[in-house]
């Protein structure tokens, strides 16, 4: 077997995905991920309904800013972040807890192929959940504007371009955080410490030396967001956490995408290496 059996590997990846998708999308354990993802939709919808009841006309520019803030400060940093913790950290850890990981290890499947199947399942699940929510948020936010304003904004203003950009950032966030927490999940048994460490690391990103800023997910995502939020303004207001939103030296779009892809590849490659040496040890029972 000198030839690389790509066909077989792909079949095996699909077999793994069939098992994993069911687990990630429909497990009772993961319900809170849906909650986290769809909270903003509910908030924006409630806001729209409220505005319609009052018969008020909105200000698209203002709403666009509100959206940008919620997207960056809540959706990226908390919802997708913790959603990926829930989905990707449990890809292997969940089965260690259930003591059923060995069934995968006893199949004629390379550990790397197994990893690919699991990671792609996580990525697909996260993308579907957070992508859907993202689109619905957009719809809910601008719902209360009259149709001509909406048309104007969508097709002649920034509307569609923003939607596409936000969707792209959402998917890249799933990829980046997914890869990071995949790696954390094969490295640590206890999810709390690595999660807290990454959370802090991402929060202080803006005040780190430039070289270190590049070793993060949020740095690239911030640079790709279509509307920058005025982090320095929050600082002026005396907001002690204002630095979280700062983006002192944004990367160009190409750099950001390439950087994020590179980071993800490194994290996945590292996970694959770890997995190849992983032993089945469920602890004492």
């Amino acid at each position: 077997m000198n030839e690389r059996p790509w066909g077989l590997w792909w079949t095996q990846v699909r077999a793994v995905m069939r098992l994993e998708l069911k687990k990630t999308l429909f497990s009772r354990r993961g319900i809170w991920v849906y909650f986290l993802a769809f909270v903003p939709v509910i908030i924006f919808a409630a806001h729209s309904i409220y505005m319609m009841k009052l018969g008020r006309a909105g200000d698209i520019g203002e709403d666009t800013h509100t959206f940008a803030e919620i997207f960056q400060l809540f959706y990226l940093r908390l919802a997708i972040f913790f959603g990926c913790v829930g989905i990707f950290m449990n890809l292997f850890r969940g089965e260690v807890l259930d003591k059923s990981l060995h069934y995968y290890f006893l199949a004629p499947v390379r550990r790397t192929v197994l990893l690919a199947g699991k990671f792609l399942s996580g990525l697909l699940a996260a993308s579907v959940i957070f992508g859907t929510s993202m689109v619905l948020q957009f719809v809910a936010l601008y719902w209360y504007f009259d149709s001509s304003t909406r048309q104007e904004y969508l097709f002649h203003g920034h509307g569609l371009a923003h939607l596409a950009a936000y969707l792209g950032v959402t998917l890249l966030a799933c990829l980046g955080y997914g890869a990071v927490f995949l790696a954390a999940g094969v490295m640590f048994r206890n999810p709390l410490l690595p999660t807290a460490a990454v959370l802090v690391w991402e929060a202080i990103n803006a005040i780190l030396p430039a070289a270190l800023q590049h070793i993060s997910v949020i740095f690239y995502l911030k640079s790709l967001c279509p509307v920058t939020i005025p982090g320095d303004i929050s600082l002026d207001k005396g907001n002690p956490l204002g630095f979280i939103a700062m983006n002192p030296a944004p990367a160009s779009a190409v750099t950001a995408i390439v950087g994020l892809l590179a980071l993800s590849i490194v994290a996945v490659a590292f996970s694959s290496r770890q997995l190849r040496h992983m032993e089945i040890d469920y602890g004492s029972d």
Partner: peptide, 29 residues
């Protein structure tokens, strides 16, 4: 493993299974 488990079957001592499966689904998957 890619070669090994074409010729090896292992019934472990662990009394645990993937969640929610029937006997058939377990073997089939």
């Amino acid at each position: 493993p890619e070669r090994l488990f074409r010729v090896v079957g292992y019934c472990t001592q662990f009394d645990s299974f993937p969640r929610g499966m029937t006997g058939y689904q377990f073997i089939y998957s």
